[in-house]
Nucleic acid binder design. Sequence first.
DNA 1: AGTCAAAATGGTTGCGCAATCATTGCTGTT
DNA 2: AACAGCAATGATTGCGCAACCATTTTGACT
Lengths: 333, 333
Amino acid sequence: MSTKPNLKDVAKVAGVSAITVSRVLTDPSRVSEKLRSKVEKAIHDIGYIRNHAASALASKKSGVLAVIIPSLSNIVFNDVLQGIYQAVKAKNLQVLLGDCHYSPLEEEKLIATLLSQSPEGIIVTGAAQTDYARKLLLQADIPVIQIMELTHQPIDMNIGFSHYQASYDMTNHLLQRGYRAPAFLGARMDPRTQQRLAGFKQAITDWPQPCSSYIHTTVQPSSIKLGGQLLQAVIAESNHQCDAVFCCNDDLALGALFESKRMNLSVPKDIAICGFNDLEASALVEPAITSVSSPRSEMGRQAVEMLFSATGKGRHALAPVDVGYNIIVRSST
Amino acid sequence: MSTKPNLKDVAKVAGVSAITVSRVLTDPSRVSEKLRSKVEKAIHDIGYIRNHAASALASKKSGVLAVIIPSLSNIVFNDVLQGIYQAVKAKNLQVLLGDCHYSPLEEEKLIATLLSQSPEGIIVTGAAQTDYARKLLLQADIPVIQIMELTHQPIDMNIGFSHYQASYDMTNHLLQRGYRAPAFLGARMDPRTQQRLAGFKQAITDWPQPCSSYIHTTVQPSSIKLGGQLLQAVIAESNHQCDAVFCCNDDLALGALFESKRMNLSVPKDIAICGFNDLEASALVEPAITSVSSPRSEMGRQAVEMLFSATGKGRHALAPVDVGYNIIVRSST
DNA sequence: AGTCAAAATGGTTGCGCAATCATTGCTGTT
DNA sequence: AACAGCAATGATTGCGCAACCATTTTGACT
């Protein structure tokens, strides 16, 4: 076969009509066993592959799920993606994945591009979409779900947890442990990091006894190495008064831990360290790092379920879902 | 607009013909400045988004790049993906990403599914495709590139490096350092891990002086924790004779390092540790871990370039590309 | 055997767009 | 002023498939 075979070619080989072949592909139960096996053999023999564009156009079903995440390199979104792919596998869907690099404008462009594929649903991260992006999403008339964080004005569905509250709790944990000069180390400063910072500030404000606090942030992307640099910076800045660092994620926390060893600071005696996201390494380093865990892959899985169980097809088909979080206390605090 | 707007709706609003709108979208230079701005305004006003299925069907161009990786959770493929996304961004392509979970059969199914989207090129990982998958890829008549490793019978294009040779070199490094009882710790045992094991074995065989060696592998997925367990296992198995461990990747190596501390083994005095892939953490732990680095994201970027610079459209449009590797010697050996 | 309902199969059509060809308008040249 | 030559725009058509409706076959029952 020099040119790509189509339905008719298969039909000819199998000695049936084109529509019968189509049925074998979309709903085999509607074709008799005899014809079905003939058709399946023909398909396999000539290596026929259905033309998705034509199929999508005729059926108005694309079999595509659009997903937009802020970063491919952040392992956190990987976990979510895994949950998404797991759920999608049982559903005969393909995933179109976009990386918007934490930029709402890039996200807007991506949304437009991905919507052109007529996805049957779309997963976006966070709630910082531009107005135009929101308009496009609403108009697309497909289920939309915002994941990772909770928002008061969801576009449609929403699943996540409160980064603010988790951070508030974690800061309280430090204060309860007796640390009175905690620092918040933040990188990237995307919306969720900012919520974490807000939770930190509020917890300090709400604490009944006086305590000092330090905040050191940068818009640089997060990394282990940066964690070490931020630790140095805040220690210098605070004139060695800082006695605990709350890192906005575990990468920074790991970097801070490694750096503290180089600086001959004992953790948690000289300085406590805690992070966010509970990466595998955090539990295995010495001392193990206190962190906030959340069911990321479960959240991805559930997001897909919610998208496609929304029978009503109306907006807000399901109430926002709070997947919660856990403060995992370890020896670093 | 109750139903999704189409080209005609835009045309009506802009007071032009449908085809003119189409041209604004595909090649604005072919439309006069005056009409173009009218059309663009109409598009934005009614929030029109082109129907990709129809466009793909009519133009026989899908604007899609298919990518299959063996695992979403392995950070190594993340790096490659980043390179791919970076290169793709400049090319108006969307990425359809599949995760075949290290299974050639799942990969075959994925290839069939992804090919149905008429991608303009496809990136697959490794060279262990099934015969039927190879047939489908050849028949699809699109550029195909196998990445990560080098193969003698590429389907079409190929970019990667020799895991066998890298492992051979690393093992020699250990032997040259004076270690005479190295162990190979392997997880997952996918084709590339097996090539690394083969390189290890050959280096041991080729070494002029007698030396003992140990091999401990499992098909379990790799993790930091598993690295610790494998270290324990090989130390017990070797009756404490083993003096160096070559971990098939840096996750295992980190786990082995953390575990060695718990076992009160000094690295590299009591035991040397080296890994593969050169993750960020490997350079920052204490002692820093010797590893094999390779230009992963560059490989992804280049794969995309190769796919779409293949003007000839024939098979083997470009010679296989060896991106090479580097043994990064650090204090763990 | 005859009847009828249900299952299996086929023919026709349109999805929304871009390729192709056709037409119109516009500029510069003599 | 006449015309060539090109740029800009429009009309028609078909991409490959599945929805829809029509027809044929099967099988259960009297």
